[in-house]
Nucleic acid binder design. Structure first.
Lengths: 214, 214
DNA sequence: TCCATTTGTCACTACGCAGTGACAGTATAA
DNA sequence: TTATACTGTCACTGCGTAGTGACAAATGGA
């Protein structure tokens, strides 16, 4: 019944248990008791090895990559940078939605951030700030000025996608959409694509219109 | 120190205390002990008069109107229905943002819905579903077909605004924006306005409103 | 006046939580 | 071999929570 005497392994057990408890019970179920029980380890070791629950969460947050890496969002299309801006934005959103729908743990943490701040959310905040920079670079591409005109609406759209994904976990409907159905998400992707086509182009149609071809 | 013997008044005290505790400690601080203490009443009366915490929350949810009524979002401009669609959408978003920024209690409940379902969130869900219908009618106005084409993007924008307002409570930055500054919100409103101008128009037969794909 | 019901108070149980002190077994270094 | 540090277990305190039973005081009807 007693654990092998191996601190390294025990620490890994505890770290793994954090994710397991989070996945099973959600953020409100997180606590030293639950984590220790899940790890099959005495809770005092959490204090001894990590210094308490907040410090443990910080370590866990740094170890796992729940946030989709920007590269993964465009991986299947490595020449995405050569696409015209509307297609680029469309593909980005499509992959972003799919990636987040596959990451329930990310959504759990994302939801927790809205309710309470703690060591974990602080760690993830830095991480995502860097992510935002990378996305801006990706979407801006070779025409940063064009992108600049649409950064506001696109920011709200990114926020909106995240919010709808969070709501989907607990509440099925939002306005006209059933957030549990793939068809709804396809429709939303199509709407965003239409938005991109309609707006993400150089404003002057006549005269010195600039083509978005390389 | 004993309360006057007046059930009606005591019930009102308890209901008021729900909102007070929610405002002061947030949703995680809600509990029979805290509510009873706030109301200056013994907690057993919560069970006796309301049947427990979930039932109390349901009553409270029905009694208060924290969600901005659609009429209030356009009150200062009663002839909003005569405005062209882009201006109509722009005004709606501007008022919607301002209204929610003035309702911390609404945001608290909105955030709670993302984490846990309970009697309160169920009640509010019905309420907001009706709200969504009213908004659709308002924005659609006399040209439901036009609106239909943009319902998806607008839905995501509404969701995005709500999400940014929720994040602002705990996390100051989102992408390029400081969510605590009025200037950021003005910029976001302007971006939404630009989106509305660019997309929410009738495709003219020979007009330049919508640009063709290359 | 008498009695039943209602209103409000108090004391209590049972539970889960965070955190800690004491202890036993094991590895390691002198 | 002996002393020391380390790893893991157990039992415990203290706190806050939800929920309940017993009781005192006031009300209102017969």
């Amino acid at each position: 019944m007693s654990q092998p005497r191996n601190r390294e392994q025990t620490e890994q057990r505890i770290l793994a248990a954090v994710g397991e408890v989070l996945a099973r019970e959600g953020f409100t179920g997180i606590g030293v008791n639950a984590i220790a029980k899940q790890a099959g380890v005495d809770k005092v070791l959490i204090y001894r090895y990590f210094g308490g629950l907040p410090a443990l969460l910080a370590v866990w947050g740094r170890s796992g990559q729940f946030w989709p890496r920007v590269e993964d969002l465009i991986a299947e299309q490595p020449d995405v940078l050569t696409l015209p801006p509307p297609e680029r934005l469309t593909r980005f959103f499509s992959h972003f939605i799919d990636a987040l729908r596959r990451r329930p743990l990310t959504l759990e943490v994302l939801a927790a951030e809205l309710v309470a701040r703690n060591e974990l959310t602080a760690v993830l905040e830095e991480e995502r700030e860097r992510w935002g920079q990378a996305v801006a670079t990706l979407l801006g591409g070779d025409d940063a000025a064009l992108w600049q005109d649409h950064i506001g609406a696109t920011t709200v759209l990114i926020a909106g996608v995240q919010y709808l994904l969070l709501r989907a976990r607990k509440i099925r409907r939002f306005g006209a959409y059933d957030l549990h159905s793939d068809a709804s998400w396809d429709a939303l992707k199509a709407s965003i694509a239409a938005y991109a086509q309609a707006t993400l182009v150089r404003p002057e149609p006549a005269g010195h219109a600039r083509q978005d071809k390389p």
